[in-house]
Design a protein around this nucleic acid. Structure first.
Lengths: 186, 186
DNA sequence: TGGCTATGCGACAAATTGTCTCAGGTATAA
DNA sequence: TTATACCTGAGACAATTTGTCGCATAGCCA
């Protein structure tokens, strides 16, 4: 569903939110409007593209897991439309593999849900280097390691679950279930 | 310690390995020499820079956690010396935040240890989008990966099972049982 | 000796996997 | 169009693996 903002021609910077979770879009939309953005929401890649082609947004927030297709392709297309667009990729299924891919495709930043509006704002502002990232003292938990590894093989194989399961010598049903679960925090 | 390769002027592509773990450097060095690279190793950022300034490497493998400083600054500097250098960042303490930063600084890829030489090779080759050519020989099965990882953390902690279990966020009883089982092949 | 921690292992419940099975989807070749 | 060959999500149920407790033993240190 396309929901053009009522303040399209405003002086406020335009920001496109793309997420299939409508509730999430609404909440985020309100929070960012209050912070001075002119918000537009889209719930599918096609809608997002239509909107962006009409008027390329200055900022964009894209969810990685959009129904069928990956939000990654949208990042690439938005970038092609306007290399100046600042894009933050958001996802509840964060992994190093997709983060690497997102940044290489031109995303400005990559954040794991849950996030709040302030973190997103900070992500838009940030430039390389000025962040002093603590090198985590602790190694990944085995569960997390497994998640990262699976994600890596999965992206290397075009997100083909069957192939990945075979490569990993793991039952497809099991892979399905692991992927359905959110990655454990930490 | 600076260890210039004996085949500096060879026809082989030059590859600089920067990791403070000497054993790891040696092992990796041998594996990559066999694959046709002219390897040089450095264990500190300063050494790495000295070497790179003398002759910028075509490829580089940089560990994130180098003694005091972060390997991230090295990525940036190597890139400044020669934007064409392909850099893979490696780390036993992977996190999404550092992965994002590494890629933004110009790293070609970011991998969590344990990795094998083939995976690193694949990372060098890969470019955005065209990703999936690697009929990677045989990535480790998740079970095998877990075993390798557990062994590493275990030795890093003096073979203390209780401590390792806590770090890995895994029940001690479970770790006991996993260790009791022999490592599954493949 | 008491306090603290590590270790091995038995037992049972809780959770995760392996298997099998269906019911679509999506290509491609005949 | 039909056939063939994949891929995918999901239900159901048994087989395994984990999480949890508990307990006895052992080393260390004040």
């Amino acid at each position: 569903m396309i929901e053009p903002s009522l303040t399209d021609n405003s002086e406020y910077p335009s920001l496109l939110i793309v997420d299939d979770d409508e509730v999430f879009c609404d909440v985020l939309s309100k929070a960012l409007t209050k912070r001075g953005f002119s918000i537009t929401c889209a719930h599918t890649i096609d809608d997002a593209l239509s909107l962006a082609e009409m008027s390329t947004p200055e900022y964009a927030i894209v969810d990685l897991k959009l129904s069928s297709e990956s939000g990654l392709v949208l990042v690439e297309k938005l970038r092609n439309l306007d290399p100046g667009t600042r894009i933050v990729m958001l996802t509840g299924y964060a992994s190093i593999a997709t983060a690497v891919e997102a940044i290489k495709l031109g995303a400005t930043h990559y954040l794991a849900k849950p996030v709040d509006a302030d973190e997103i704002m900070a992500a838009f502002e940030r430039t390389v280097g000025e962040a002093n990232i603590p090198i985590s003292a602790h190694p990944l938990s085995v569960g997390r390691l497994e998640w990262e590894y699976i994600q890596r093989i999965l992206t290397e194989n075009d997100n083909n679950i069957s192939v990945t399961a075979r490569i990993l010598n793991m039952h497809r049903r099991t892979l399905q279930r692991k992927l359905a679960k959110r990655p454990l925090r930490e």
